[in-house]
Write a protein that binds this DNA or RNA. Sequence first.
DNA 1: CGCCGTCTTGCGTAAACCCGCAGCTTGTTG
DNA 2: CAACAAGCTGCGGGTTTACGCAAGACGGCG
Lengths: 240, 240
Amino acid sequence: MKVLIVEDDPLHRSYLHEAVNAALPECDTVIEAENGTVGEKLARDHKSAHIVMDLQMANRNGIEAARTIWKERPETRILFWSNYSDEAYVRGVSRIVPDGAAYGYVLKSASDERLKLALRSIFIESQCVIDREVRGLQQKSLGQTNGFTDSEYEILVDIALGLTDRAIAKRRGLSLRSVQNRLQQLYDKLDVYQSGGDDHEDGRFNLRARAVTVAFLRKLLNYSALERAEAELQEWLDGK
Amino acid sequence: MKVLIVEDDPLHRSYLHEAVNAALPECDTVIEAENGTVGEKLARDHKSAHIVMDLQMANRNGIEAARTIWKERPETRILFWSNYSDEAYVRGVSRIVPDGAAYGYVLKSASDERLKLALRSIFIESQCVIDREVRGLQQKSLGQTNGFTDSEYEILVDIALGLTDRAIAKRRGLSLRSVQNRLQQLYDKLDVYQSGGDDHEDGRFNLRARAVTVAFLRKLLNYSALERAEAELQEWLDGK
DNA sequence: CGCCGTCTTGCGTAAACCCGCAGCTTGTTG
DNA sequence: CAACAAGCTGCGGGTTTACGCAAGACGGCG
């Protein structure tokens, strides 16, 4: 059995290496990659390897890497090991996981024990292991209560990218008015009207910009999500 | 001599601990804090301590902590040890460093040797040590070429927060038109008109929102900067 | 089938935004 | 002091947003 570790930080990398050795005596080779690009390449070279992947990496982030890896080989087992449980990450991951694939999401703050258990569950037993905290987010976001529809999330990303209503309409194949409807829906859910709605109206917000900020502060968006969305946008722009 | 380590990540924390021991034999006590809040408290308790501080921490980030520490004791020597050299961080740090204070900014990717040298230079020799990469940013941002004025940065933050032109005018004591002037200036510098300015005009951007996005992608803004700005905004809103 | 909720679309309006033009106040420089 | 650059401000107008109102379209359900 082979395990591929994809992780930015040398300290974390060697920690992972040890953890893998301790948790999986049946594993005979451990390979390391220090960014997403190298990770993809090594995954291609070692087709049987299971993967432990950091999400936040400078060169090419974990979600990107995982997507191309899964595209080539959907049955690959990947354990995401991340510092954060931003909804943006969680959403990003669940968007790309293939049907029936075994994967995991464990926070770096988890104990050694938890990490080892997760390693064994996923790589040996093919079971999904999602950190409790992450799991909570996932359910809240999928359940309609307090969560965001895909269409709402989509339009959030679009205004975060800085598109006009018209451009969004064109991109998503909607009328102008429909786009604006979704925006209102979004504004409602993000509670953008806060602080100033009742008394004097002088401190009002620019709803569009405020929505993006609030989403950022709530970790619905983060840098990595923006980066991905921007790449998709450019692709679309080039494709006419 | 005492050294206080303020760092989120247990692995990094113990690495730092060792590095301090190795670089500073004259140091007899090393104290550790796992977030900014605790760091502030321990800094108060151990007034003579030099500090090594991580910037990105979940609970209370390094810039906040450093600010209150320096407010109480401006001669404290602080070495910032960070994963990133986002302009937002660099700007945030240089905004709060007291006149004549000795401080340092070293990236986590630096070698052991570099870290040790920095520790000695700052804590023993009272010299400022700024990582080469960070230094580059600093100069570019202070020099007018390609850099952003304080007023431009200020208005960038304001629209990122989602304020209306009118609200910004009130907050900064300007006329509406002046605010809009600065905005145009900002749009120019951020090169927001890209892609579509020449040929067909269908893929246009909402300049205001686009500016924020571009700033994010260029790391002029990041989560921590937004968080701080939001706190200041709330303060201002409360103060009428 | 008819009723109902959700989603889409068009029309219309008030507000906000982007920005060219031009007059003023400053600080700087020869 | 004259000249000039840089920033602030008001005016005016074209465009984009935010959103109420109301008329279809579609799917589920009794």
